[in-house]
């Protein structure tokens, strides 16, 4: 059973489809008790950081998530919420990853939208995936580089697109929208 954190806001449908296609059962919930019992938790990425963080706090989920010992994967905004701080809405994150999230800047089209190639350090999360594989991105804020950086990509500058610390993982791109390699990455996480 894979537990998908439901913020009540966004579209979980695509992610749920992608996981079910891999043969897993999905539970969408924001119930702290159910999250504590989860085998694996995915925090999806939809919407704006400030209301999402407020939702976690109001429901006591900030503490619950920090204390999870099962594998956790944050996707897009879900990853950004696990960092120390995000400039989007100037909110503190859960502080799992030692990086902060800053607005993309420079002479670039923003949002960073489309497929971009990813360079990663060896990790179970990227097993069977070639270096420079393309993943689908759509975001205007990006995580800095730090100890927890697992993968990077280039758009104006280099930034973290995958983070890892203990049982926590995060990816900036959308694996559920990234074709074959996205599916492989989800499969790798689900098999942890």
């Amino acid at each position: 059973m894979i537990t998908l954190l439901d913020y009540q806001a966004g579209n979980l449908h695509s992610l749920q489809n992608a996981i079910e296609r891999l043969g897993y059962t999905v539970l969408c919930t924001a119930d702290p008790a159910l999250l504590r019992q989860a085998e694996k938790v995915i925090i999806p990425g939809v919407g704006h950081a400030a209301p999402a963080m407020a939702f976690l706090k109001e429901n006591g989920l900030d503490t619950v998530i920090r204390e999870l010992t099962c594998p956790v994967l944050g996707i897009c905004l879900g990853m950004q919420l696990l960092t120390e701080f995000t400039e989007e809405g100037q909110v503190s994150g859960l502080g799992v990853f030692d990086v902060t999230v800053k607005k993309l800047s420079g002479h670039l089209k923003i949002p960073h939208m489309g497929w971009n190639s990813v360079q990663y350090k060896p990790s179970k999360l990227f097993e069977e995936i070639p270096q420079e594989a393309d993943f689908y991105f759509v975001h205007s804020y990006a995580a800095t580089l730090g100890e927890s950086t697992l993968a990077t990509c280039e758009y104006g500058a280099s930034f973290s697109v995958a983070l890892a610390k203990n049982n926590f993982y995060g990816v900036q791109f959308h694996p559920e929208k990234s074709g074959k390699w996205g599916q492989q990455l989800l499969q790798n996480f689900l098999a942890l």
């Binding site: 929208k177 990234s178 074709g179």
Partner: peptide
């Protein structure tokens, strides 16, 4: 469509 394809 969402159930079928894996691109945006």
């Amino acid at each position: 469509i969402a159930a079928t394809i894996q691109i945006p």
